[in-house]
Design a binder for these strands. Structure first.
Lengths: 110, 110
DNA sequence: CCGATGGTTTCCGTAAATGGAAACTATTGG
DNA sequence: CCAATAGTTTCCATTTACGGAAACCATCGG
């Protein structure tokens, strides 16, 4: 029983369509919990939980002013995703290049 | 009860450290189920399930020859992720630009 | 001060993910 | 044909995710 890694939380946060919808909205500008709950077709308690997942994933930040809490995207929200994916793509391209080279080095048949 | 969307399956597939480890291995070249199970410290049945998740997410493909099944990465494995993330980053950059512009347009204080 | 509002927490039921044991199938090697 | 091997399926137990109802807390408006 070990605590989840950062990438675990980020990808898990992105794996839910409701949360991705919230991200799409927040990418256009900050919003309160209520403003995020309505278009996602959720009750407030569900919205609060989803937003906590997004915040624990390091995707959004929030600040409470009075009785309203406002959420906003982090500028580096997708950095871990981009870094991890880029590294895999680099390795993947190299692997395909090696394969292509091996094919080119094969003696022709007939 | 609606079937999961493609992005749901992809992000869910990436949310597990064992599966990400398999991806890192496969990005360096194809491998069989057994070869993937050992470094991931899994039994074969678990490996089979994880690999099915990766395949249903469109991240890997497999082919069975004789009694061994070989897995390989798809070249466009991360295209949906890159597309979705890029779109959000574009919107996010625009939102921050608008904010910066609004700040620049504010009358100076004292 | 009182009611309405925005948010939060607790509790509950349902659904899904995870992991392994065991049993089964299909192929390979001798 | 027999034994070992690679994979697959089924079953089971544990854990976690998900969504809403209800109750609770803090704050704003009059």
């Amino acid at each position: 029983m070990q605590q989840a890694q950062p990438l675990d939380r980020i990808f898990l946060a992105l794996a839910d369509p409701g949360r991705r919808g919230m991200i799409e909205q927040l990418a256009r500008g900050p919003a309160t919990v209520k403003e995020l709950a309505r278009p996602a077709n959720m009750r407030l308690p569900s919205a609060v939980k989803h937003l906590r997942v997004l915040e624990e994933g390091g995707i959004v930040v929030s600040r409470k002013a009075g009785r309203t809490r406002t959420y906003a995207m982090r500028r580096d929200a997708f950095s871990p995703v981009n870094d991890w994916v880029s590294a895999r793509e680099t390795a993947l391209d190299a692997a395909f290049d090696r394969l292509a080279q091996a094919v080119a080095d094969m003696p022709e048949e007939e």
